[in-house]
Amino acid sequence: MTTATAPPARRGSRAGARGTRGEQVAGYAFISPFFLVFAVFGLFPLLFTFWVSLHDWDLLGTRSWVGLGNYTALLEDEDFWNALVNTLGIFVLSTVPQLLVALALAQLLNQRLRARTLWRMGVLLPNITSIAAVGIIFTLLFARDFGLVNWLLGHVGVDPITWQEHRWSSWLAISTMVDWRWTGYNALIFLAALQAVPRELYEAAQIDGASPVSQFRHITVPMLRPTIVFATLVATIGGIQLFTEPLLFNSGANAITGGTTRQFQTLTMYLYEQAFTGQEFGYASTVAWMMFLVILVVAVVNALLLRRLRGVA
């Protein structure tokens, strides 16, 4: 790495241009740690999973080659489609408000305030708490007989709701849980990006008399576009792999099926159920690869939507 010295060549336009030899070497050297480690600990499990998905593979017993049989079976599997609908539903219900609020929150946190550290760290508190504790807390909050939520609703005349029982209520409760945990996280990522936006921009805009909303639209959003794209992508990936929150929400027996009629079973829960309750390692691996494809599709759709957004702005 140390041998790579800066090239004397001009560094004008970057797009498409080939780097000098020094740049090439440094480039590969800088990215090599990631790829080396990933090759060992990431790629092997990935390829192995694909290999398994081509088999009828009992986790503890026999295995036989079925080619793409698992994939065709999965496409006709109602429970898979049900899990897909749940996953996407909860994803939209949680991610959209989460990112919008996070962006606004970042903007607020970026102002000159007293005790900034306190405010900025405050938003991350839900994330500091281990997921197991969050699970216990939320199950208690949403409990039918003694939960805080039903108790509060009771004061305005709402009968106790069994939150796990209905599709709408379980989605709502899980989305609340996800948003609670991840809004501050995203706000902090946005904040880090915001700090790179020269303060003079805002000051100039203020002198021009631009309102905070207008500043937000015309400075913050355009300047943060790469970070917004990034946060959306990460939220997409996290949202489609949603697992722990709905699992913990369904405390007690059969937690993995996500409710009596699978009303809030996500894709990862279905994968887990197939692998460890049903012992169908091959089929579960197929679900994993289909999830991979789903994430890919949703990510591309996201990218297209965000591109249009730029066109409007």
Binding site: T139, A143, D145, G252, A253
Partner: peptide
């Protein structure tokens, strides 16, 4: 539901 938080509390 057996072994759920509410069952335990019951």
């Amino acid at each position: 539901k057996s072994f759920s938080t509410e069952w335990t509390a019951g």
